[in-house]
Design a protein around this nucleic acid. Structure first.
Lengths: 122, 122
DNA sequence: GTAACCAGTATAACGCATGATACCAGGTAT
DNA sequence: ATACCTGGTATCATGCGTTATACTGGTTAC
């Protein structure tokens, strides 16, 4: 008997999948990592530019997260030695591997907002 | 000039998309919501069953999250009045709307684990 | 009759992610 | 010459998401 019918993913190995899910949550956890990745992947390169593109983020949090993301190989920090205050950030291939997750979440968020608006009308 | 070339999602409205992303992060934030949704969508119905399917979760956290998820219409709690200690949980349609996100995250987590294993070999 | 299982609740504590505010040196525009 | 921009850092405060531990009343298994 196929015991995995009617499930989310017809998983062969549920335990492995929970683990994968928990790994991912650990890596992208927190309020800011995904919005920052999204911003940089969308072409924002300058510190202030990224800051302005993410409502609510503080300079402190952005600074911290960027540092950590550089350490973890998500982004490259390019500091022009001639122009002291000219730094640029760019996404690595690794960074772009989050695209599917981010797209799915943007999609969900849009639908969610539409649904809430519906409820208010009813 | 097409300014949205070479981006993650070729967004028409970046501001709207960040907002959608932040909404989603707000809703599914924390360590446990997604694993619980995943567990129930995979057919786990009993409290202990769900508990055992999610490594590391405490009874208290599961209890709290289930209560909140019921309030928010993510799950239904079916209490059999004849058998006091027989409660079942089931996913609503709304709950299943997270499938794409969860699948994308499981996928990422698996690849991530493979990549880390690669690095250790090198 | 006692041991283990179920579905939780109570209470207390903790730590880390996040926030608020201020400050700084160097460059640029007028 | 002064006001604003950039790319940050320092210090301190706070909250709440999470953990730890223990307890409970009822049910089934042996």
């Amino acid at each position: 008997m196929a015991k995995t019918k009617n499930t989310l993913s017809s998983p062969r190995n549920p335990a492995e999948e929970v683990q994968a899910l928990q790994d991912t949550i650990y890596v992208i956890g927190g309020k800011w990592k995904l919005p920052i990745i999204n911003s940089i992947c969308n072409g924002n390169r300058r510190f202030r530019e990224i800051e302005r593109s993410i409502p609510g983020i503080t300079r402190r949090m952005l600074s911290r997260e960027l540092k950590e993301m550089e350490l973890n190989g998500l982004i490259r920090r390019l500091d022009d030695p001639d122009f002291p205050a000219k730094v640029e950030y760019e996404a690595t291939t690794y960074c772009k591997s989050f695209a599917d997750i981010i797209l799915a979440m943007i999609d969900w968020g849009k639908k969610h907002r539409a649904r809430v608006k519906q409820q208010l009308r009813a």
